[in-house]
Simulated scan of single mutants.
Amino acid sequence: MGDNARQSSCLLKGGRFFLLEKERYLSDRFALEPASDKQLLQDIWGTPWGVFCPVGPIRSVLMHRPGEEVLQIPKDQYEVEAGSLRLREVHGRSLSKGRGQDPPDLGLLQAQHDGIAEALRKAGAEVLMLDQPESGVWPDRMFTRDLGMVLPGGVILSRFALYLRQGETRIAQETLGRIGVPILGAIHGQGFMEGGSFALLDSRTAAVGRSERVNDAGIEQLRQLLRIQEVELLTIDMPSDKIHLDEAFLMLDTDKALVNPRLLPHWFLKALHERNITMLAVDPEDPPLTINALAVAPGKVLFSSEGCPTAELLQKNGIEVIPVEVSEIYKMGGGIHCVTLPLVREEDPFGRASAVTPRQ
């Protein structure tokens, strides 16, 4: 084939496929690539959807700007996102006061949510919004993290434990279908699973926090779905007053994590150490949800402007901190991590090895 002919074969056809790629999709050959193959995702789904590195640069994120629905929550039920309902059954002094606060300042809540969205855009992410439901209030739907577990190639849909949030799965499915994100599975039956209690450590290892919102049936279904993707699942028992893993653990870089060691079992800290992950402890003087932050790229994190001692520790260890206001979001029981669901994270742009390499 001459140079002109070779160049002609590589011209864009229809603005999407190369000519040779078009011939590929008209063939009757078997597809050899996995469903998570980036070129296949780009060609068929329009975007290489999924999280290919737990701290890779965020290119697409799902959010919901809070509206009047948050004012429909009964006064004694604020902070359900981070509150253990089981502690209400324990008589005597309790670590949990339930929501029991005045309703949030909606204008301030929206302004702080807008600030997070703008910071994400400045970091290079497209901010996509959750569809409005056809019926139902679903007042906690600003916490989009809980809608699913995102892997290379798509998302596994959650199933919520509380009636308060049951309708959010349908909204998520409709939104993701409209956007074109592949659905890799869903939690069904008696299983409960929420995305705030799920974290990828690297491309082959994930962790889930078992709590009143995440039960054994949900964990077993998730484990089976992850096995298809060749991802190992570690299960961590959360303390009785915590419902999600993102209250105790956050990946900051491929080899650094923010942890609350008082809330994590010794074997998990040992597993992180054996994977060459440097652990940085959140300062106990900072607000409880300070750890609920978000890495927007390796070593670059959106962080509460109130968490000054922890932010100083991160900066001393080479982490770039982008401060954002979240005080009113805290009133709702969530943080930065809770209100963001990354749908596209690229691989580590520096090409560093995965943190799973065991220590010698």
Rank of each mutant, 00 (worst) to 15 (best):
M1G: 15
N4R: 11
R6Y: 07
Q7V: 09
S8F: 06
L11Q: 13
K13T: 07
K13D: 08
F17R: 10
F17I: 06
F18E: 01
L20S: 05
L26T: 03
S27K: 07
F30I: 14
L32M: 12
E33S: 08
Q39N: 12
Q39W: 06
L40D: 03
L41K: 00
Q42G: 09
P48I: 06
G50Q: 00
V51S: 02
C53F: 00
C53E: 07
M63V: 13
R65I: 12
G67M: 02
L71G: 12
Q72V: 11
I73Y: 03
I73S: 03
D76L: 14
Q77K: 15
E81F: 13
G83S: 15
S84G: 06
L85E: 12
R88W: 14
G92R: 10
S96T: 08
K97F: 09
Q101I: 15
D102S: 14
L106V: 07
L106H: 04
A111C: 11
A117I: 11
E118T: 14
A119D: 10
A125I: 05
E126G: 11
M129Q: 13
M129E: 11
E134V: 09
W138T: 05
D140I: 06
R141C: 01
F143Q: 02
T144E: 01
R145A: 10
R145G: 03
G148Y: 01
M149A: 14
M149E: 05
V150H: 00
L151T: 04
P152H: 00
G154A: 02
G154S: 04
L157F: 07
L157S: 04
A161C: 10
A161T: 06
L164K: 12
L164Q: 14
G167R: 05
T169G: 11
T169Y: 05
R170K: 12
Q173E: 14
L176S: 03
L176R: 01
R178Q: 14
P182H: 07
I183N: 06
L184R: 05
I187K: 03
E194C: 06
G195S: 05
S197M: 07
L201G: 02
L201N: 03
L201E: 01
A207L: 10
R210E: 03
E212V: 11
R213Q: 08
N215Q: 11
I219P: 00
I219L: 11
E230M: 11
V231C: 08
L234A: 09
T235F: 04
K242T: 08
M251T: 03
L252P: 05
T254Q: 11
T254Y: 08
V259T: 10
V259P: 00
N260T: 08
P261Y: 03
P261I: 09
L264M: 04
W267I: 10
W267V: 09
F268V: 04
L272A: 03
R275N: 13
L280V: 08
L280N: 02
A281G: 03
V282C: 10
P284D: 09
E285Q: 13
P288T: 02
L289M: 13
L289D: 01
L294E: 02
A295N: 12
A295W: 07
P298R: 09
G299I: 09
S304R: 01
S305Y: 04
K316H: 15
N317E: 15
G318M: 10
E320Y: 05
V324R: 00
V324E: 08
V326D: 15
V326E: 10
S327P: 02
Y330D: 12
K331S: 13
L343Y: 06
L343G: 02
V344H: 00
R345M: 13
F350G: 04
A355Q: 09
V356P: 00
